[in-house]
């Protein structure tokens, strides 16, 4: 377990024990990233601060559902922030079943210390560059899904491709991101499951 993750796990234990100061430390550590995510999702800074507020209060309230053995606190927090923001924009659109998305958050991470270390070491510039290097249609699919809250079927409609292709673009994007960040060739191990056939597999 990395130092950062150990720290986070310890913070989580303290929050779980009801120590509000530990939540303050978590805020000090990740509020900048949380607010950036919320702004990207909801657009307005004022509303984004409401999202961040709600997310941290949710983390406080539901910390018992966090399991450090299954992922990092940072990843969980960011998922909660993102989901709170998406709940807001989806409620404006009313096009999909809005759920209490943070209920689903825990499985969005996994206990892989090597990857966690890669992510911890990577700078924002490197992460941004890795995203920027994606083909436009893959980056667009990721952004529509993650930051704008569209389902892969909606992404397919918006971009005029079959749902399998939209999902395939996301798969390729994530594989390339992983490869770009780790340089491990991990992406090559991802078999492209694409209902649309070969278009995505060849990119």
């Amino acid at each position: 377990m990395t130092e950062a993750r150990l720290d986070d796990a310890w913070l989580a234990e303290r929050v779980k024990a009801g120590e509000a100061r530990a939540l303050g430390e978590l805020y000090d550590r990740y509020s900048g990233m949380a607010l950036a995510t919320a702004i990207r999702v909801v657009g307005s800074r004022e509303e984004a601060e409401d999202v961040v507020h709600d997310a941290f209060v949710t983390v406080w309230r539901k910390i018992d559902r966090f399991d450090a053995g299954r992922g990092s606190l940072r990843a969980w927090l960011m998922t909660v922030v993102r989901n709170r923001g998406i709940d807001r924009i989806r409620s404006r659109r009313s096009t999909v079943d809005v759920d209490e998305a943070d209920e689903l958050s825990l499985l969005r991470t996994s206990p892989n210390p090597t990857w966690e270390e890669v992510v911890t070491r990577a700078s924002t510039d490197e992460l941004r560059a890795a995203l920027a290097e994606l083909p436009d249609e893959q980056r667009r699919a990721v952004e529509l899904a993650y930051f704008e809250g569209y389902t892969y079927r909606e992404v397919a409609e918006i971009t005029g491709v079959p749902p399998g292709t939209a999902n395939g673009r996301m798969r390729l994007a994530l594989a390339k991101l992983r490869q770009g960040l780790s340089g491990s060739g991990a992406a090559a191990s991802f078999a492209v499951v694409n209902a649309n056939g070969t278009e995505e597999a060849t990119q």
């Binding site: 939540l23 992460l127 992983r178």
Partner: peptide, 30 residues
């Protein structure tokens, strides 16, 4: 691994500086 990788997407954003009020507001709610 794919799920895990998706977690880096928000980390590509330039951090934003919250207003001074936000921390106090959160701690009050907590």
């Amino acid at each position: 691994e794919l799920i895990e990788t998706a977690g880096v997407v928000p980390m590509s954003l330039e951090e934003a500086t919250p207003s001074a009020a936000l921390r106090a507001r959160i701690m009050t709610s907590v």
